[in-house]
Amino acid sequence: MDALGIATILTTMSIVLALILWLPISLRTRIRRTELYLSGEPQSGFTVRVTEISWAVRRVFERIYEILIGHVQTGIFNDWFALSLPYLLILLLLLVIVVTVRGGV
């Protein structure tokens, strides 16, 4: 058997086995809901905001994001050209130089 077959079998098996093991446990337990745990503070309807998932990433990569958002992905049309056209020129130059160095037909 190759690795792809193994991956298919092992994962399908895990998903099904997990379901089989989950059923009795889930059927046996009742669920009782309480207030959110807030170290004893009253629950005033606040939850974790999903925007905060990446706060640490933003802080650590602050300078990279400054460059990326401030200079690369600005959304301004002219900036696109400033990046895109040099790319075309570099591509052209590179290939033409390759051809002249290596010699044509």
Binding site: S14, L17, A18, L21, S26, T29, R30, R32, E35, L36
Partner: peptide
């Protein structure tokens, strides 16, 4: 027999995920 959990927690889904992880 009793699972005490937060007001919005989808406890059975989390239970499944945990078992899936172990398996």
């Amino acid at each position: 027999k009793e699972l005490v959990t937060g007001a919005y927690t989808p406890a059975r889904l989390i239970l499944y995920l945990v078992i899936l992880g172990i398996v």
